[in-house]
Design a protein around this nucleic acid. Structure first.
Lengths: 217, 217
DNA sequence: TAGATTGTTAATCGATTAACAATC
DNA sequence: TAGATTGTTAATCGATTAACAATC
């Protein structure tokens, strides 16, 4: 397409939010929305919303606003949600199970093809219709099944090994839940979800809130 | 303490990373570290690291650097990790299970006291030594057991109800895994973990990478 | 046409980086 | 003391907000 990749991550991270809010508008049969209305819903300023959208094209119409359905569809395309992604999950623990069972990923086009583990007790089992295979088979499975995304749900100590296999197999992106910094080749995307860091900010903010409160009195 | 709360979220979100990297240094018996060395490990600039740390106090020593153990301990205190947090999980689905079983939360002082659900089939069961109780009991449980943090692992449609009960019960923070914007009173912290938004940025970045590659050739 | 709202440029704000004096 | 590295101020960079002409 005609667009560039000098889009800042700040903008990129707002796109899924726009997509979600527009989906909600559509669920409520709202067909038309102005940046001001979107501002009220999302909490971003109208100015920022217009700036963000204009990174990708002029989706609006002066005097009218945006067609909610069209904008939703276009942002979906921008996010790459107009295709199908075959995924594998590494680690059949609780988190691996949770992700395999999470139907909204499936609905959005992210299809889990297999789960990999090393524990002989669970290999061969099925988790929400997806088979658990031995990690030994991961690399060839990726190549034979056109897997785009690997989801790492292993303990920290095994995360880099898992990433190495995923990269050798040729995935394009890794969604990493292990609290480790993966080293991968430049052409592979890594998105980290670090739950413990997220939880620590909760405790930080609770503490901070308490301190400012006790100061006021 | 003497510190203020005009710390930007950008800084706050780096603190858990510093904490983690310092923990790793200590595991490797490294007692002393300069901002330059930390820069190499973390990928942040040395200048930024010094700026960040100085928001909270002068933990270093000119000509020497930082004492890794002391800095680790101090950042732990800043994050509020020197106390114990009693938590409850709402939603005994896969994600609720995964979080109840995640031992690193426990190790860091976040202790799950009970899991709540409405499904009669699982009420009374135990998930990693924690009992599943009926949602009806949530509010009184929070008050009687000094619960600080509620963890919402319900489907989206029930998330706001769960949040309302948590707030009435008096929690100080909510860790929310449902893709919904919770409305809570100002004195309650909400930290959202939106998995679908995170996954969408993966597909965005994969697509963007492909486009820039195909342009180069 | 008059009113509304976008697309876009310019102004502001905040966060990051550079530089260096202070000092261990 | 000489060398190293912090703490901190100043400069730069990037992101957000404001403003308004373009136009539906």
């Amino acid at each position: 397409m005609e667009r560039f990749s000098n889009i800042s991550m700040a903008v990129v991270r707002r796109l899924p939010k726009y997509y979600r809010y527009l989906g909600e508008l559509l669920n409520n049969d709202i067909k038309r929305v102005s940046s001001q209305e979107l501002s009220k819903i999302t909490g971003f300023t109208a100015s920022q919303i217009r700036q963000d959208l204009n990174c990708f094209g002029g989706f609006g119409q002066q005097g009218y606003g945006y067609n909610a359905e069209e904008l939703h569809r276009e942002i979906g395309k921008i996010l790459g949600l107009d295709r199908l992604y075959r995924t594998v999950i590494i680690g059949a623990g609780n988190l691996g199970h949770a992700i395999a069972n999470y139907s909204s990923f499936d609905k959005s086009g992210f299809k889990t093809q297999a789960i990999f583990d090393v524990d002989p007790k669970i290999i061969g089992e099925k988790v929400s219709n997806v088979e658990v295979l031995h990690l030994d088979k991961l690399e060839s499975f990726i190549m034979q099944n056109d897997i785009t995304i690997g989801i790492i749900c292993t303990p920290k100590a095994y995360a880099q090994d898992a990433a190495d296999i995923l990269v050798r197999g040729g995935v394009k992106g890794i969604w990493n839940f292990a609290p480790a910094d993966l080293k991968v080749s430049d052409d592979v995307i890594v998105e980290n979800v670090n739950l413990i860091e997220s939880l620590f900010t909760v405790s930080y903010l609770i503490k901070e809130r308490e301190e400012t409160n006790s100061k006021k009195r």
